[in-house]
Design a protein around this nucleic acid. Sequence first.
DNA 1: ATGCCTTACGTTATACGTAATTATT
DNA 2: AATAATTACGTATAACGTAAGGCAT
Lengths: 275, 275
Amino acid sequence: MIELVQLQQLIAVSEHGTISTAADSLHLSQPALTRSLQRLEKELGVALFDRKRNRAVLNRVGEMAVARAKGILDSVDELAVELRAYEARLSTIVIGSCGPACMWDLAAELGERYPEKTIASELGENDALIKGLERGRYRLILTERPVEKPGILCRKYNEEQLCVALPPEHPLSGRASIRLAELGEESILSYKDFGVWQRLVDKNPKLHYLVQSDRGVLAELVRASSLPCFSSNLTVFRFRTAVNRVRVPLADEEAFATFYLCARETDRTLLQQLC
Amino acid sequence: MIELVQLQQLIAVSEHGTISTAADSLHLSQPALTRSLQRLEKELGVALFDRKRNRAVLNRVGEMAVARAKGILDSVDELAVELRAYEARLSTIVIGSCGPACMWDLAAELGERYPEKTIASELGENDALIKGLERGRYRLILTERPVEKPGILCRKYNEEQLCVALPPEHPLSGRASIRLAELGEESILSYKDFGVWQRLVDKNPKLHYLVQSDRGVLAELVRASSLPCFSSNLTVFRFRTAVNRVRVPLADEEAFATFYLCARETDRTLLQQLC
DNA sequence: ATGCCTTACGTTATACGTAATTATT
DNA sequence: AATAATTACGTATAACGTAAGGCAT
């Protein structure tokens, strides 16, 4: 049986020109390499070198062999890389969502149920999410509307009411609900990846949005300041203790959403466990 | 470094279901195979089996690995086959010709000059010969007309005058030349692969052609009978001793040809040695 | 109880290095 | 003389088999 080391040795000889120098580069004695190459020729059933007593040069067959050997070794190297990537892929659940809070909830739930798995999540728009689910990019997606497509299962996951969290001394903090526009040109802490709620932001361009990309940083700022920030019925658990704020629901129609959890049909059991 | 035997072992396990039975089929002890597979997993950096103390079943990564391993082993098997074929190709000079006798002459000449090479020859039509030369199928070709194409060298090789070899007692045996049609409906020994001379045959359909595909058989028939047969100035050397025949040249215009030897420009020296 | 995988240990076989040989530049 | 390949021989390492242990069906 041919062995891969022999192919490496062949390539080394082609790169170094002589068996001796190749042997050096392989940390091998010349005789050892000579013998190994002789075995290779015998096993392949062809002569790879023109041998002139004190010189062995690759013949045309040998050069062809070198080219093929490189290809084979490349594919063997790929093998390890590919398998490691495949293993990582198998042990990761990627979820896509159109809203941040519900995504965090889902990620947390998955993390508890499948502690051996890595949970990755990203925000996206409805169509991109569905395509991503169909193509295998996502294992689960959270959409704004029910998805009715062959091969895709869909269930209602939860509802979210967006609020503003105001400091108690804020003039609007006593209200049962407000419209976002009522904050006028005030500053408000906001998220970079805001999903469906971005529509509400776009409709109220007068406010001064202090956009944060890092969740931790935002939480810090909330604690360290008395700035208004966004909140919702889903974020209550995370912020209930630390934050000295009064949550006032937003009456804008863009401030309410129902989320649907979708999976491929092959993941029926996974979906059932989560709803 | 991964070794190919390990990939074979992996495949054997996937085919036999258990390590023990696979070990049997590989003429190896179970512990040895177990260790070898453990090394493979370590070298690849991934787990290939779900191990339940007394059972090792391929996991999904393992199945992927088996598929890849098969591909790699296939390409290694191909390597040997391909190299042997390539070596054979390199040690063979294939010539193409539009006439049989001049082809035999050329083959004989090459055989003497390059005794280490195998000489293969085949008949073909002009255009096919030129294409074959350009595409590398032929190393040398013999054509009816000079070839003037970039990348192709061409020289006059020889001239051939087709004759009929008649028994001395034949009424036409005393003539200086005849036309083939003068033989009326007589029988005549002929070749299956006749190249350019086939045109002459086609023009004289009345004769009874005893077509032979084997050169040896034809020579035997010539010796054992007094049937007329085809001959030429080029075949004289081969038949001079054995044959009790009188050669009468054919006056038909299709019975004379000039042959040109062509090679690719890279084979300039080869061509020069032959002309 | 049997089948199967793993670990431990002593042994063998294969491939290695050193040294000697030959040939070429 | 120097460089490079091959052959011969003793050695060492790495993989093997046997034996023992443990778990599951």
